[in-house]
């Protein structure tokens, strides 16, 4: 699967930055795929707790942890959810542990090592502003 980078305005609007972002359908919420940044520095997949709310996921009994993000700490709750990506020509669905975090300052979800980079062979061709994902056979 191939995806172009997404052009995202820098804060302040002075410039546009192409970013390696793919849209991920979470638990079949196809009408609103969540934009997620590929982040090989993140140990896991993280999203805002609002995503859990959108998909009607009850996290009250989910395992929780305090996570450091960008100089602050957030409360994360862990759940196994179905994720899917598609480039229009082909797609792939898998299940992964996702930390739903509150508060959540990043504008996107973060696709980290466990649950994403361990499920795909990932090429980030920054010079061509494109991403290639090849699912790894289980």
């Amino acid at each position: 699967m191939r995806f172009p980078f997404k052009d995202i305005p820098d804060p302040g609007g002075a410039a546009v930055r192409p970013r390696p972002i793919v849209d991920v359908v979470v638990e079949g919420l196809e009408l609103a795929p969540q934009a997620c940044l590929l982040d090989s520095g993140a140990s896991a997949v993280r999203m805002g707790a609002h995503v859990a709310e959108l998909i009607g996921l009850d996290l009250s009994k989910a395992p929780s942890a305090t996570i450091a993000v960008g100089g602050t700490t957030v409360e994360g709750r862990l759940a196994e959810v179905a994720l899917a990506v598609s480039d229009g020509a082909s797609g792939h669905q898998w299940t992964a542990p996702v930390w739903f975090c509150e508060p959540w300052r990043p504008a996107f979800g973060l696709l980290g090592l466990t649950g994403f980079f361990d499920r795909f062979e990932v090429t980030v061709a920054s010079y061509e502003e494109r991403i290639e994902l090849t699912p790894i056979a289980p």
Binding site: I8, P9, D10, P11, R17, L37, D39, G41, A42, S43, A44, R46, I67, A68, V69, G70, G71, V74, W99, C101, R105, P106, A107, F108, L110, G112
Partner: peptide, 13 residues
């Protein structure tokens, strides 16, 4: 993104 933290995707560990 409204600020650098929102834009940066600062990786949680």
């Amino acid at each position: 993104p409204e600020d650098e933290i929102a834009a940066g995707g600062l990786a949680p560990l």
